[in-house]
């Protein structure tokens, strides 16, 4: 294994920095540009199956609404050369991108029902994706839904998807479970080859000037890394499944911190959006320099060094962390009482 190489979802990557799902993968050229920065793998922006279908229905309505109402024109559009397929654009992008880059391309999928999950998962695998990331973005806005039902839904999706595709499947999960660690292990048990920690819920904001609620997505900041890093550290020695860190990567230090916690790969979108795709090159060089300065010969030499040891009392570990956090806070802000 080379100096920076790592394994993620069974895929051999040239380094552990992965460009994650975001706006920089809209075209083949963009994907090629990303690959050219030296990242180990690329996760495509998510294919939102439900939205694609809704858009397709809307388009069909646009076509139909003026048809058959005027003698000179019973339609206003040609019959499409191919039967309309709402997923074709995304699938084609995956197919062409995967063929155009020398590194693994990981497709990302978000669907509404189990049937769609499996249908599109198969199509993405056929299109040439090296792996599939299930972006299970599921906000139980229906407050009558129990936690158990939410968990069952996740497990059902993972089982269904992994039963129909041969490529490795990762689950991008949210941190909001009663026992996140346990549920993470359940997902692995259900068939997930790896976990991506964590999905960030897009939370609406209040725009005071307009007195309106707007949907918004802020780029993540290093503070967002605390939760995923903690869970990666906790899970690292509990499983052999791949663990990907995402959120809050802005500097080389953030990358290193995740790897120390035990991440197999570190994903970033925000940094690349903020600083430009070329910034990936700086992160990789920085990581390489840091490793050299510490005398590490491979990523495995330091990966998981700060993970919770398998034999540790995790509760005590967590409590200790809590206590020390309080102590730190007291030092900073004075008495919290």
């Amino acid at each position: 294994m080379g100096f920076m190489e790592t394994t993620y979802l069974g895929l051999q990557l040239r380094n552990p920095l992965v460009a994650s799902a975001g706006p920089l993968t809209q075209t083949v050229d963009q994907v090629k540009k990303l690959a050219g920065t030296g990242v180990g793998a690329i996760v495509m922006h998510s294919m939102f199956a439900e939205r694609l279908r809704r858009d397709a229905a809307h388009d069909a309505d646009l076509e139909d609404s003026y048809a058959e109402s005027f003698a000179e024109a019973t339609s206003y559009f040609p019959t499409p050369l191919l039967e309309p397929d709402p997923a074709r654009n995304y699938l084609s992008l995956v197919e062409r991108s995967a063929a155009a880059i020398p590194i693994p391309l990981i497709a990302s999928l978000n669907a509404a029902d189990v049937g769609s999950w499996t249908t599109y998962a198969k199509q993405l695998a056929d299109a040439g994706a090296s792996a599939l990331e299930c972006n299970i973005y599921f906000v139980p806005g229906d407050v009558s839904l129990t936690g158990a039902e939410v968990e069952a839904r996740h497990l059902e999706i993972v089982a269904a998807v992994t039963s129909v595709v041969q490529i490795p499947v990762a689950v991008k999960m949210s941190p909001y479970f009663s026992s996140t660690g346990n549920f993470a292990l359940q997902l692995i048990e259900a068939g997930a080859y790896g976990l991506v920690l964590f999905n960030r819920f897009l939370q609406p904001k209040v725009l005071v000037s307009k007195m309106a609620v707007v949907s918004g997505l802020d780029l993540s900041t290093p503070a967002d890394a605390h939760v995923p890093r903690t869970w990666i550290a906790t899970l690292r020695n509990q499983t052999h499944a791949s663990l990907a860190a995402t959120s809050g990567v802005d500097t080389v230090g953030d990358v290193v911190a995740y790897l120390l916690a035990g991440a197999d790969v570190v994903m970033t979108t925000s940094a690349l959006v903020r600083h430009g795709a070329g910034y990936a090159e700086q992160l990789i060089t920085g990581l390489s320099e840091w490793m050299a300065s510490r005398g590490f010969k491979s990523v495995n030499d330091f990966r998981g060094k700060l993970a919770v040891p398998l034999d540790a009392d995790a509760n005590a570990y967590a409590r200790a962390g809590y206590v020390s956090a309080l102590e730190n806070a007291q030092e900073t802000y004075g008495s919290l009482a």
Partner: peptide, 20 residues
């Protein structure tokens, strides 16, 4: 506009090329 989207839905590669 559907007139442009239609091509992306049926021939994404051509659509991307023409858009460029």
């Amino acid at each position: 506009e559907l007139r442009f989207r239609m091509l992306a839905d049926s021939d994404p590669e051509a659509a991307e090329h023409l858009l460029e």
